[in-house]
Design a binder for these strands. Structure first.
Lengths: 178, 178
DNA sequence: GCTCACATGTAATCCGTTACATGATTCT
DNA sequence: AGAATCATGTAACGGATTACATGTGAGC
């Protein structure tokens, strides 16, 4: 089956538990956001499509007037998810980093501006690091509870990644005489 | 002036020398590709727009039957580029990493599949590292020639980045008992 | 009463890629 | 002679974001 990446993310999210479209989005904002994002405009239509394909199953859970439709993975959905994870196929990788792009052209700037740019980049990743560290306790708790280790592992990857960049910036800053 | 990121890349590329649209694209493929990419479909229309704005100046250089239009930066273009580099504004940062995304869900896979996935990710970044290392001599030569240090610095950043990820994968691989 | 979080969805729009169309020159 | 590279451009398409529209429930 040829599904979009978004489809697989949705399947993966549902494997971690029954969820509504809203919950998928907010959970992604607190977990995969660092290396993968999705918007409502992708998630809701995708859930419909996956239900038509029989990979997920939705159920109305409206209590009172508030509408709510929670989805869960079917056996076919779980199989599809697993085959995607284990398929050795090419891995889409894409980085867009405006800070490094500006740095690429930074010979046009003064040393003071160069250091300023490096500090701005560093501040950005310091902020990201703090955001990831803030969700770490919740990720640890979830790991203990349901036994899924990889969400925590990838979170730690994100933290190490942010530190790698901040360290690199710091070294560069020290190397420039203002 | 409110220009797209693509516009600034084009300005930056022209600051490094008079170039055609084709040359901008192929140069980007050998320099910024790791953290910023652009296609002909963006570059050619952008060159026209920038010329209308007076930020670049094109000149027909067709020798014989082959058409060729090379552009160079105007003083206004150089000023615009510099103000972008030094403006402390928010830096667009976006990562899409399908390997890490799959890893996030890898609790659904067997240990052997988990190690296989990590090896695939590592192989991908090892390849990127080799590609970047291959263009390093040319970048060093260019640095010696025109004195622009940052293209080489950002290239070295790319190499360190690739090594960071391959090292991380290796550590993870060792931590899984197959 | 107000604000914030929960909840669903679509339409307009933007951004960017891919494919196509065309042709000259250079290298093997 | 044929392949690869140089060179320009557009049209169709796809993917994703943003804004909009709508309403409930909980806490202050």
């Amino acid at each position: 089956m040829d599904l979009s990446k978004t489809a697989y993310v949705v399947l993966g999210m549902l494997r971690l538990g029954k969820r509504t479209g809203y919950e998928i989005k907010s959970f992604m904002d607190r977990s995969t956001r660092f290396f993968w994002v999705a918007s409502y405009g992708q998630i809701y239509p995708e859930l419909k499509r996956l239900e038509e394909l029989g990979l997920v199953e939705g159920e109305a859970e409206s209590q009172g007037g508030r509408q709510r439709r929670a989805y869960m993975l079917t056996a076919a959905g779980e199989a599809e998810l697993r085959s995607w994870i284990a398929s050795g196929g090419p891995l889409h990788f894409e980085l867009r980093h405006e800070g490094v792009l500006r740095l690429f052209f930074a010979d046009a700037a003064t040393p003071a501006e160069q250091v300023g740019l490096l500090r701005t980049i560093r501040a950005e990743h310091t902020r990201v690091r703090a955001e990831l560290a803030a969700i770490e306790p919740a990720a640890e708790a979830a790991c203990d509870e349901d036994g899924n280790r990889f969400p925590l592992i990838t979170l730690e990857f994100g933290i190490a990644y942010a530190e790698f960049i901040t360290d690199w910036c710091e070294r560069m800053e020290r190397g420039i005489d203002v």
